[in-house]
């Protein structure tokens, strides 16, 4: 039910945001609409970000449609709380709406840029939650349990290829490095906490994180 509502109302809602009388095309599925205003050399998501930086609500809607499942999935994995993941998703997209102009295509791909924004916001929330302590945990436990998030089956082939490439890259690095970088990326733990958790010296953990990230970066350069 939620999925139907989402796909039907997306574009009219974002068109109404602008309130400038511009008639946006009716909502369509997939990236068919993404060819507008893009040059042949520019990656589609980079072009969308450029359009969003100019206040293009339709481009923003397209980005949301394209990115929200993968970003929401990431947030749920880090926060392990769908409600907080929703808040973080909204906060992250507001950030993109405001700061799309700060994206630099020379530094990273659009998805890497977006992933790091949302990951950092989730980690900030995680640390903030831990600082608030057990009192907040108790309140959370008293809240009614939410329905689990629905897996998005409609991911495009491009993203599926990316996931496959990442899977191969992760399998190519030693398990201890994979474990260290995964903990560092998803848990929000400090280096010392990771060292304690994995029972290894701090220097070893730093080295594993360094080597793991470098190997992943090199293996996936240009693929994400």
């Amino acid at each position: 039910m939620a999925a139907e509502f989402y796909s039907n109302v997306s574009l009219p809602i974002f068109a109404s945001i602008m309130g400038n009388g511009v008639a946006f095309p009716a909502a369509q599925d997939g990236p068919a609409r993404m060819s507008r205003e893009m040059s042949s050399e520019e990656p589609p998501e980079a072009a969308l970000l450029r359009q969003v930086s100019g206040g293009d609500a339709e481009a923003f809607d397209e980005l949301y449609t394209r990115w929200s499942p993968m970003l929401y999935g990431l947030l749920c994995k880090i926060l392990e709380d769908p409600r907080e993941a929703e808040d973080a998703l909204q906060e992250g997209f507001l950030h993109i709406w405001r700061k799309a102009g700060s994206y630099d295509a020379r530094r990273s791909s659009p998805t890497t840029w977006a992933y790091m924004i949302f990951r950092n916001k989730a980690i900030d929330r995680l640390r903030s939650r831990e600082r608030r302590g057990k009192g907040m945990e108790r309140i959370a436990e008293e809240e009614p349990t939410m329905a689990p998030p629905v897996t998005d089956p409609g991911e495009d082939a491009e993203n599926q290829e990316r996931r496959e490439a990442v899977k191969e890259a992760l399998e190519s690095i030693p398990a201890d490095q994979r474990e260290a970088v995964s903990l560092a990326f998803f848990s929000g733990l400090t280096q010392t906490e990771i060292a304690e958790k994995l029972g290894a010296p701090l220097g070893t953990i730093k080295a594993r994180i360094r080597r793991g990230l470098l190997r992943l970066g090199d293996a996936l350069k240009g693929k994400l």
Partner: peptide, 22 residues
């Protein structure tokens, strides 16, 4: 290094956010 870190994000399965978020 950012590229390497962002790769980890791809290991999270995609989930459809509730329409209320939009």
């Amino acid at each position: 290094l950012e590229c390497g870190a962002a790769a980890l994000a791809w290991t999270a399965p995609p989930l459809k956010p509730p329409p209320a978020v939009r």
